[in-house]
Amino acid sequence: MQRQGSGGNAAVVVRVIGFVLLIAHLLLVAWTGLLPRDVAWVTAPNTVPLAGLRADLALGPAAAARPIAGGLLLLAPLGVLLPMCDGRLDASRWGSLTRTTAAGALVSLALELLQTAVPGQVVDVDSVLLNTLGVALAHLLVVPAARVRLRRRRESPEGRPQGRVVTGNERAQGGTPRIPRVPIAR
Score class of each variant (00 low, 15 high):
L81A: 10
P83F: 06
A138V: 07
T116V: 12
G104F: 00
A62P: 05
D126S: 06
A91N: 11
A76V: 03
A51R: 15
V107D: 03
Q121K: 13
D124I: 03
V128L: 07
L78E: 02
D126P: 04
L53R: 05
P67H: 12
D126I: 00
R99D: 08
T98Q: 13
L97Q: 07
P77L: 00
A103K: 05
P119S: 10
P61R: 14
S127G: 15
G87M: 08
T116K: 15
L137T: 03
I68R: 09
Q121V: 04
D86T: 12
L89W: 09
L114N: 10
T132Y: 03
P83R: 01
L114F: 15
G71R: 02
L59P: 06
D124W: 05
G104Y: 01
G87F: 09
A138G: 10
D126A: 02
L137V: 12
L97C: 10
V80Y: 07
L111G: 00
D126T: 00
A63C: 08
G87H: 04
V125I: 14
L82Y: 00
L59A: 13
L72K: 05
V107K: 00
A103D: 09
P61E: 12
A102D: 11
N131Y: 02
L72Y: 07
A64L: 09
A102G: 12
G134D: 02
V118P: 07
T116M: 15
N131V: 03
A55I: 12
D90S: 14
A69W: 12
D90R: 15
E112F: 02
A51Q: 15
T132V: 07
A91W: 10
V128P: 00
S127V: 09
A136T: 05
R93L: 15
P119V: 09
L82W: 02
C85T: 13
T132D: 08
C85S: 13
D56A: 15
A91I: 06
G71V: 03
L106R: 14
G79C: 02
L113M: 12
P77D: 05
T98G: 14
Q121M: 03
P77Y: 04
L130S: 04
Q121P: 00
L78W: 01
G87K: 04
V118W: 08
R66H: 14
L130H: 06
R66K: 13
G79P: 02
W94R: 14
A110C: 14
P77A: 05
